[in-house]
């Protein structure tokens, strides 16, 4: 149990995907203008991440490894993620139209979110067990949402700030991300206990 909690905290805070591994930066910079839409995208991504970790773990350890097909890893993973996102989109549309309306536009964006593929690659590199992989997916999603929402909050206020002209847009967003990354470094001590 302790191991699982550690994996969760590491994935969501101390080794935050966005702020320490630079995964999922595209939506981080592109979408995070408003808090509402950030929460929507965050929840959709968390869901896909958890499921993607589960599915790719099973495929990797029960199909690719036993049949010696590890060199197909990247191709398989990306196909799994892409088809999974489509599947989720279809199911949500059938089951809950209101939820689809809220999340729908974000779903296609998720396929090209490097955080998802990154998650599955890290999972294999670190030899996570099945349970650890699932928790890792969940934690990474929560961490992604957290970073996205904080960023959106700052950017909503940034409208009132006088940013030097050349830095407007991407420039200032990156610099703020840098400061957030420094702030998150401060959490590094939690695990050492």
């Amino acid at each position: 149990m302790k191991e699982l909690i550690l994996v969760f905290i590491a994935a969501s805070i101390t080794n935050n995907f966005v702020l320490t591994y630079f995964l999922g930066i595209c939506p981080f910079i592109g979408v995070s203008g408003k808090i509402d839409s950030s929460i929507g995208l965050g929840i959709a991504t968390t869901f896909v991440m958890t499921m993607a970790a589960t599915v790719t773990w099973l495929i990797y350890y029960y199909i690719l490894v036993p049949f010696n097909l590890v060199f197909l890893q990247y191709v398989t993973f990306i196909i799994v993620i892409a088809s999974f996102v489509q599947f989720v989109e279809m199911v949500i549309r059938k089951v809950s139209p209101p939820l689809y309306k809220a999340l729908g536009i974000f779903l296609p964006l998720i396929t090209t979110n490097c955080a998802i593929l990154g998650l599955t690659l890290f999972m294999v590199l670190r030899n996570y067990s099945f349970l650890e992989a699932v928790v890792f997916g969940l934690g990474a999603g929560v961490g992604f949402t957290l970073a996205l929402v904080i960023m959106a909050g700052i950017r909503e206020d940034l409208v009132f700030a006088e940013v030097p002209e050349p830095l407007q847009g991407a420039g200032i967003t990156l610099i703020i991300a840098g400061m957030l990354a420094m702030a998150f470094m401060g959490f590094g001590g939690i695990i050492s206990g």
């Binding site: 630079f22 420039g171 200032i172 610099i175 840098g178 990354a181 470094m185």
Partner: peptide
């Protein structure tokens, strides 16, 4: 050391983008 840490990456790129725009 900050430059090789993630925070340095963000800040350097942000400033480079600004310099590029100028």
């Amino acid at each position: 050391i900050i430059m090789v840490l993630p925070a340095g990456a963000f800040i350097t790129l942000g400033l480079l983008v600004g310099g590029f725009n100028i």
